[in-house]
Design a binder for these strands. Structure first.
Lengths: 241, 241
DNA sequence: CCTCGTATAATTGTATACAACCTTGCCGTT
DNA sequence: AACGGCAAGGTTGTATACAATTATACGAGG
């Protein structure tokens, strides 16, 4: 859950710790740091030109976000995502994105709805052109709009957490053009349901959207990529008891 | 979401930072620190006999758990829970506890089921006697068992976070004997559905259980207690822009 | 009497020094 | 050659010192 207010961002923007935190999160999610890689305080501090203190504090945040795992007196390691984790996240997200869409139907503002339409329109264009990077960006933004529109700081923050968490995996699997197009069609349906004020339908569609996204990932070989991460993770665990 | 592994606990148990973190969390949830109260690093450090460093790191964890809010260069303040927050949490929990019960139906172990039965049996006893403290404790434990039984570290951790978060409120509102008894009856129904292997029913019942709990809170005057927290929170926000 | 500015105190942010712990590799023993 | 202990190096944990920022109080000016 963590916190869910704006202070958070200002906090991250203007303090060294915040900048280190954001940098490291970015690097982990983008895959610059690989799974189970060790993060050393001094090395990162030197690289960013700061002392260990802000680095350590950033580590604590990363740990709470689930991106790294800190083993006392030993080190900080990038956490691995197992195939089961991804499955669980999509199960949870399916329900919560549904709830979010339902709430958004009542609370969405005119501006948000317009940005959504624009987003879908643009995504159509990029789908035709085969611009995968832009597609991914627009997909992120679509869900972000939805999160904002539900008018629940808590739900918004929770969904954002989960969304961020699977970014690493999604980058590899959404990169198929056919799914990108289908996904955008589903976005359109959700948007139309919200526009029509049909909260129940919007919920159902958002629900389904997640399930489809997951099914697609499984089809494209999620198992092969992250299937064996489980053993390594457990191995790391036993080492510290 | 935060992290969801066991290291977490060992981490908290054996390090100063961990102990400070647990102590402060305990104190906030138990109400020793009131809402919007300022937490000063040196004062807490002296009280616990540690330096500022572990206190600061504990603060970062508490912030990520949503229990305090850190305003840069200003201070750390205990976050307030608004009535809307509580409502949102129960909406989310309703879905996720349902999912949890559904999954648990497939995955629950014999030992867990037995502990559940014992829990309900004991709660019946304490309900008769009017032992409110024990009732609350057993209620916590019932849900914990369910979280463990769903066999999803992620869902377990997420639900635990939310559950912890509303503890502050629940302490005051579950303290009515009639609700305690009704709640335990609902627990029994959920348990029986799981025992019978009816995942759909278990999900529905757990779903309903949360809604009932929330409705009861509203009836018992949740609004009056936490209604005005919103203004104070926003006031605190604007001060830092 | 009120307002604004400045100086001082208090508090957090960061850097660094020291302590505790873990890892690693060498060496001696078996 | 294999095993175990011990020492040295490295890494994290904690404490403390210093810098930067913010709050407070006091006084000058209107």
């Amino acid at each position: 859950m963590t916190n869910y207010d704006k202070m958070y961002e200002t906090n991250d923007k203007y303090s060294l710790r915040g900048r280190v935190f954001q940098k490291l999160r970015e690097d982990i999610l983008s895959g610059k740091f690989k799974e189970h890689e060790e993060l050393k305080e001094v090395a990162i501090g030197e690289e960013l030109g700061v002392s260990r203190t802000p680095v350590r504090e950033a580590f604590r945040q990363l740990e709470l976000e689930g991106l790294i795992q800190i083993i006392p007196n030993k080190g900080a390691y990038v956490t691995g995502i197992t195939a089961k984790d991804v499955k669980d996240i999509y199960m949870i997200r399916s329900l919560l994105e549904g709830l979010c869409a339902r709430l958004a139907t009542e609370k969405i503002t005119k501006e948000q709805l317009e940005e959504m339409e624009e987003n879908i329109y643009l995504a159509d264009f990029h789908a035709q052109k085969g611009h995968l990077d832009q597609m991914a960006e627009l997909d992120n933004r679509f869900h972000d709009i939805l999160y904002e529109a539900c008018d629940s700081k808590l739900l918004e923050h929770t969904l954002r957490d989960f969304h961020r968490y699977v970014l690493r995996v999604r980058q590899k699997t959404l990169a198929t053009n056919t799914r990108g197009r289908a996904s955008n069609d589903e976005h359109r349906q959700i948007m139309e349901a919200i526009k029509a004020g049909d909260a129940g339908l919007a919920e159902q569609l958002a629900n389904r959207h997640m399930i489809n996204a997951y099914d697609n990932m499984v089809k494209n070989g999620l198992k092969e990529i992250y299937g064996e991460a489980t053993e390594e993770a457990t191995k790391a665990d036993t080492g510290s008891k």
